[in-house]
């Protein structure tokens, strides 16, 4: 089937439009000079200028960025280790529990994970703020990273690693010379996923954060509860643009890498 038939084309156009029109509306209205949503007051970048004056929002964005960077990096390391254990250790005592704990956060409602983590932090009498939010995000996103990396590991040709060992490489060498370069795209994908999940998270942060540590989604949430504000439109547009650029670049990178490999 190489020609696209009309019903297929319709389904594609409708589906893609449904996915993108709301985002487009948001982006469009971020350039609206009028404060009212339905009134087009002409093109303006005033909301972007207002954004730069909004210190609370900027602080929140900076905090979110820090949390996302730290938590994504920690989560990727933990996820990589977990993926190695799952894909390479065969059967070991406690494997079922381990695999269960990796899979559970993926289907667990965030309200439950958030509540549970908060109760832990309160129990530990930990000061709530940057680190509690970061640890909460690591716990959630490490599982996503583990799944992404494990998927790549399980399709990796084992004979490549065996060949390296057969040629005299110590186990550690095999890992760094063969395994790591081969799964690097998956590690990057895992990191990106962890990063964006952390940057986006509202629920876990709301539960585990403390006074003075308000993340960007928390800030956005508290403003939009009160209604649509053009400033948030502007912030959203910037965020969407950033994420889209990074994801497209990364997928091009991974694709080039895969092409070079096949």
């Amino acid at each position: 089937m190489n020609r696209l038939r009309t019903p297929h084309l319709l389904a594609l156009v409708f589906g893609i439009a449904f996915l993108y029109l709301p985002i487009l509306v948001l982006v469009l209205y971020s350039f609206n000079a009028s404060r009212l949503v339905t009134v087009w007051g002409g093109f303006s970048t005033r909301w972007y200028a207002a954004l730069l004056q909004n210190q609370a929002l900027l602080d929140a964005a900076w905090l979110s960025l820090k949390v996302a960077l730290v938590s994504a990096s920690l989560a990727t390391i933990l996820g990589l280790l977990a993926a190695l254990a799952l894909a390479r250790f065969g059967r070991f005592a406690g494997r079922t529990l381990f695999a269960g704990m990796i899979a559970a956060p993926l289907v667990m409602p965030e309200v439950i994970t958030g509540l549970a983590l908060l109760l832990l932090f309160v129990g530990l009498d930990a000061e709530r703020g940057f680190w509690t939010v970061t640890f909460a995000h690591v716990t959630l996103t490490a599982c996503f990273a583990a799944i992404v990396i494990q998927a790549r590991l399980s399709t990796l040709d084992r004979s490549l690693e065996e060949a390296a060992q057969d040629l005299g490489a110590t186990p550690l060498r095999v890992f760094f010379a063969i395994t790591l370069p081969m799964i690097a795209p998956a590690i990057l994908a895992g990191w990106l996923l962890a990063f964006t999940l952390s940057l986006d998270d509202l629920v876990l942060a709301s539960f585990t954060s403390g006074p003075g540590a308000t993340t960007l989604p928390m800030r956005i949430y508290s403003s939009v509860r009160l209604g649509v504000t053009p400033e948030i439109n502007a912030a959203s547009t910037l965020l969407i643009g950033l994420v889209a650029t990074v994801v497209v670049l990364a997928s091009l990178l991974i694709k080039r890498d895969a092409l070079a490999r096949d």
Binding site: I16, P22, I23, L199, D200, V228, S236, V243, S251
Partner: peptide
């Protein structure tokens, strides 16, 4: 595929918020 996945990568909160402007 990228077109379908891309919205998933952009903020969930923002995507829900976008509908507030549409549906209000």
């Amino acid at each position: 595929l990228i077109l379908v996945i891309l919205p998933f990568w952009t903020s969930f909160l923002i995507r829900v918020y976008a509908w507030m402007a549409i549906l209000r």
